[in-house]
Amino acid sequence: MSQQDDEKHEFDLRWAAEAEHKEPSARARMLAARWKENPPDPAPFRADPGPVAPRRSSWVSTAVVLGCVAAVILLLGYIQTRSPY
């Protein structure tokens, strides 16, 4: 594009941004028309999440994982000592 086209394009964007009245998007117009006939039920901005179960300590999870790893190591060692090869 030429310099003149860039300036004209920039002017158009500035003019559009400074407009007093902006037309709503197609989705906004569609929802406005739909809600005029059938308004939506009121809903809170954020609903209460409800009771939350207490989380187990990270130490419990770590102990369970390490216990499983130790059990697998012991099982593999037992299998290796029992094999004839």
Rank of each mutant, 00 (worst) to 15 (best):
14 R>V: 04
54 P>K: 03
70 A>Q: 04
4 Q>S: 10
77 G>K: 03
17 A>D: 12
22 K>F: 02
49 P>C: 09
69 V>K: 00
37 E>G: 05
74 L>N: 03
61 S>F: 03
67 G>H: 01
45 F>C: 14
18 E>D: 07
33 A>H: 09
32 A>S: 12
76 L>I: 10
19 A>D: 06
8 K>E: 12
28 A>S: 07
43 A>E: 15
29 R>S: 08
52 V>E: 07
19 A>G: 02
32 A>F: 08
50 G>P: 06
41 D>Q: 15
70 A>I: 00
79 I>N: 11
29 R>W: 06
41 D>L: 14
7 E>L: 00
39 P>I: 12
25 S>G: 15
49 P>N: 13
16 A>V: 06
16 A>F: 07
37 E>K: 09
8 K>T: 05
69 V>S: 02
49 P>H: 10
26 A>Q: 09
71 A>Y: 01
41 D>P: 11
84 P>S: 02
36 K>C: 06
8 K>S: 06
45 F>Q: 15
19 A>Y: 04
57 S>E: 06
12 D>G: 04
18 E>N: 01
54 P>Y: 00
65 V>P: 02
5 D>F: 02
79 I>A: 15
2 S>V: 03
34 R>W: 13
40 P>N: 13
76 L>M: 15
35 W>N: 12
75 L>A: 15
5 D>L: 05
29 R>H: 10
13 L>W: 04
74 L>A: 09
51 P>G: 03
1 M>G: 13
50 G>S: 09
65 V>N: 02
9 H>Q: 12
52 V>M: 13
21 H>P: 02
33 A>P: 00
14 R>H: 04
24 P>G: 14
18 E>T: 04
73 I>R: 12
35 W>D: 11
74 L>M: 10
78 Y>L: 15
70 A>C: 06
25 S>Y: 07
21 H>D: 14
64 V>S: 04
42 P>C: 06
46 R>L: 15
28 A>V: 05
54 P>D: 04
58 S>W: 02
29 R>A: 14
32 A>W: 10
82 R>A: 14
